[in-house]
Design a protein around this nucleic acid. Sequence first.
DNA 1: TAGATTGTTAATCGATTAACAATC
DNA 2: TAGATTGTTAATCGATTAACAATC
Lengths: 208, 208
Amino acid sequence: MRNQKIPEATIIRLSVYSRYLTQIDKRGLITISSGDIAEGVGVSPAQVRKDFAYFGEFGTRGVGYNVKDLYHHILKILGLDTDWSVSLIGLGNLGLALCSYKGFKERGFNITSIFDNDPQKIGTMIHGIEVMPTEKIVEVVRQNQTQISIIAVPSGVAQEIADLLIEAGVRAILNFAQVVLNVPPQLELRNVDLAVNLEVLTFNIENR
Amino acid sequence: MRNQKIPEATIIRLSVYSRYLTQIDKRGLITISSGDIAEGVGVSPAQVRKDFAYFGEFGTRGVGYNVKDLYHHILKILGLDTDWSVSLIGLGNLGLALCSYKGFKERGFNITSIFDNDPQKIGTMIHGIEVMPTEKIVEVVRQNQTQISIIAVPSGVAQEIADLLIEAGVRAILNFAQVVLNVPPQLELRNVDLAVNLEVLTFNIENR
DNA sequence: TAGATTGTTAATCGATTAACAATC
DNA sequence: TAGATTGTTAATCGATTAACAATC
């Protein structure tokens, strides 16, 4: 079943399954069925098995999945068997929150450089990392071989920051600025818009 | 074309279109075609027209859409023609960032109450709002008739906070805690997991 | 062996795209 | 009128679900 196109929804669910498995593992359970996983995270058992089937055969018929094995398989699939170096651009309230966000470190994402243009912030230390001016992005990101960057700057300057990151050779950008970024097709881009989530909720409140 | 089931993807795109329209409006343009919108946000023109068609006929054949009219139509669809009162539970780094997140206020989401259990934080003022202990959630949220709550507490206590919010009668929860919450089916729930976004990126880096 | 549960195929469902008549 | 662009239908594509043989 390899070489198929994997739905992005599958990748997101794998991430959810893996988190659920850590809970299950903590409870001391050794094996788990697709039905139990499905109930735990709110999808169908067929969905769970299908998602795994894209990547191999991880279970034992009649028995289920070994919790620890499955967990490590998923981490491997997601590329989380190694740590990732991440640079952060923009040390506003959101940027500051992302610096101490435990969910990143837990999954092997380490913020290794921080950039901002505020003279008040440049030179200060955040969790042992010196805040640098944005002119240094290309030099530092290139030197560190940072593959992933998080953009948390005002929307007006997001595109120019993106251009610097592209020049520096990053492979992926997580963009928190509310603007459509223009990037080359081989660069992986994901946009996070926190307000959109509330807007889906208000739509559903009024229409369901 | 009413009374159909609207894909959630359509709602999310409507939100994106509306933001793009504010940019277009600022540039002083009066009308815009589905093709221009499509190009601006990176979808197909047919997609744009189809998304609008679920809700009515907003354009003029041969001409396009009036920018301001279309913008207001979309805001109305999303339920953003009125302001919404939002309560925030958990004043950690993320909670603090969300308090000053401009993207919320811009779209009419006003944080009207803040709760935390840290005695150091209780009683302090954040943007003119007094931080209250979580025991007060049911009382205050009920009194304010707050319909939307944001959970930004550690995953271990997220479910008990959710239970309090349900008791207080909220209609929708935006959950930033990395745990599967158990809520009644009529309650609108969306989970935001910031790490998942990075994980989709690492998967794509390694597989594309 | 009998019961349980996977892995996989085929059927279903839903969303996107293409095409074009309607019409400004 | 000729050119442009919408609104909508039908075709296509993709993802989910149901069903069941394989097998522990």
